[in-house]
Every structure is written in C-alpha cells, then in structure tokens.
Computed example of a mutant assay.
Amino acid sequence: MTDQKPDMPNLVADQLHPIDHSNLFAAQPAHPVRVLMLYGSLRQRSFSRLLTEEAARILEALGAEVKLFNPKGLPLVDEDNVEHEQVQELRELSLWSEAQVWCSPERHGNMTGLMKTQIDWLPLAPIGGVRPTQGRTLALMQVCGGSQSFNTVNQMRVLGRWMRMITIPNQSSVPKAFNEFDEAGRMFPSPYYNRVVDVMEELMKFTLLTRGTAAYLVDRYSERVETSEELSKRVNMKAI
C-alpha cells in the first residue's frame, strides 16, 4: 500500500511530485516554431482564409514554420471516416505543431460547422502515445460580416481549454471583413491589422516560453494516480 501523509489521507504521496525546475526551464528545440493554422470557410473569397494567410505571413516574418490546413473535402465526424486522408493529414499536422491558430467566420452567433468539424476531428485521447492538442499554444481570430462581435473567439476559447491547450490572452475580431482586404486578398493597414500582429507576436512569445516544457506543464497528478492504479491492477492480475 502507498504511504500517505497522516494529515492528508486522500493523497497518493508518491504521485505528488516536487516542482522540477530543470523541467520548467528545459532547453529550447533547435527548429523554428511550428504553427498549424485552421480556417472555417470554403468560399472562393473566404475572409477567414485571407485573415489566416495574413497572419501566416506575420508568423513567417517572426521566424515560424507555418502550415495551413485546407479543409475542403473533410468529412463529418463519424467513426467510418477515421482513415480518410484529410482526417489523417489534419491529425498529423496537429501532432507536428507546437502552436495553432484557429480563425472562423461568425455564423448565427457561432463558429461555422466547418470550423467545429476540424476541431472535433482532433481527439483528446493520445495518438501513438501523444495527445494531438495538449500543451500546444493557441491563438484565436474571427471575421464578422457586420459589427464587431466576440462570440466566436469566446466559444473557441472554451474549446481550446477543453483540448488542454495553452490559449493566449490576446485575440482578434475583424468586423465588416469585406472592407478590410484589397482585391488581391491583402489586408489594409488599420488598427485591426495591428491587432493581428499583436496576437501573432504574443503567440510566438508564449510558444517559445513553453514549447520545451509543454509536456511537463500539462503533467497531471490525477493522471499519474490513475496510471499507477492501472499498473497495480495489471500486476495483481498476473500474480493471480
């Protein structure tokens, strides 16, 4: 039986680890920051895609390696579609990433179904022993057809937390997005553009601070206890 502290009888003492400063301040990986970017519309002139592409240029200027996922052809979430090539590509990109940017139009006061489908295809459970979202930093953006709203970024923030991501404080919401891009799809100079730069800078800073320590930051006492209990059950079963 595991020893327990007398004044904390509910605690599994050997699973409560001291804070490891060497893990908190681990060396940075040598490669550029890896950013996966998702957008939530398939329209030919998709403002969520244009905003995502503008943000990608900023990230590349800051030294990141950026990959945009094209959601065209992505099926609805169904167990029969798990092996679909688009699903596999999305999951592999999420595993590759150290940071993500989610950008959706606001539709009926919410993110689009396409945006939610992409997120829903990223499981919380591990793939090959690695969770595809846990510990990654996340930046959120939305485009609006009318006046400025924050419904979509707020809802995606809930999802980011649920997916165990480190969601940065800053965010971008671009109202009347049809007025903010030229014919070539480039964003005009404006306070909205400046905010996008702010958000990408912040994403890079948070990612550089955490990417070498992300696995340690999200290491959980409750999961260590569960793993310990499962191991004990297996050993005892073999002994029987």
Rank of each mutant, 00 (worst) to 15 (best):
W96S: 03
D3Y: 09
S149C: 02
Q134L: 12
S228H: 14
L11K: 06
V174F: 03
N10C: 08
N154Q: 01
R57D: 00
E98P: 08
Q142I: 07
L76T: 13
R220W: 02
K205F: 10
A56N: 06
S228C: 05
G109K: 08
R220Y: 06
E183F: 00
E106H: 06
V153A: 04
E226Q: 12
H84T: 03
V101Y: 07
Q88K: 14
N194F: 01
A184N: 01
I127H: 00
S190Y: 00
E85S: 15
T112W: 12
N151G: 02
S104Y: 11
Q118D: 11
N236L: 14
V199A: 03
K72Q: 15
K205G: 01
T152S: 00
D198I: 08
A139N: 02
N170A: 15
E201A: 05
Q15R: 05
E226F: 06
S222E: 13
P169G: 00
A30P: 13
M1F: 10
V101Q: 13
L36D: 03
L62P: 04
A64C: 02
H108F: 14
F69C: 09
M37I: 15
D198Y: 14
R57H: 05
R49Q: 05
S173T: 11
V33A: 06
V130G: 01
N151F: 12
N170S: 15
H108P: 11
V158L: 07
S147H: 07
P189K: 02
E79C: 01
H21V: 03
A125C: 06
R220P: 05
V196M: 08
R157P: 12
M187A: 07
G212E: 10
I119Q: 05
Q142V: 09
K205S: 07
E201H: 08
E202T: 02
F69A: 03
L90Y: 01
L16V: 08
R91P: 12
R49C: 00
L76P: 09
M8A: 10
E229M: 03
N10E: 07
K238N: 14
Y193N: 08
M111G: 02
G185A: 00
H17C: 12
L138V: 03
A99K: 13
D7I: 08
P71F: 15
L90S: 12
H17L: 13
N70S: 02
Q15L: 04
W162I: 04
F69M: 13
T213A: 15
A99R: 11
R131S: 11
T112E: 09
L93I: 11
T137S: 04
L95G: 00
D182G: 02
V225G: 10
R34I: 09
R157W: 01
L231T: 05
H108K: 08
N23D: 10
V101N: 14
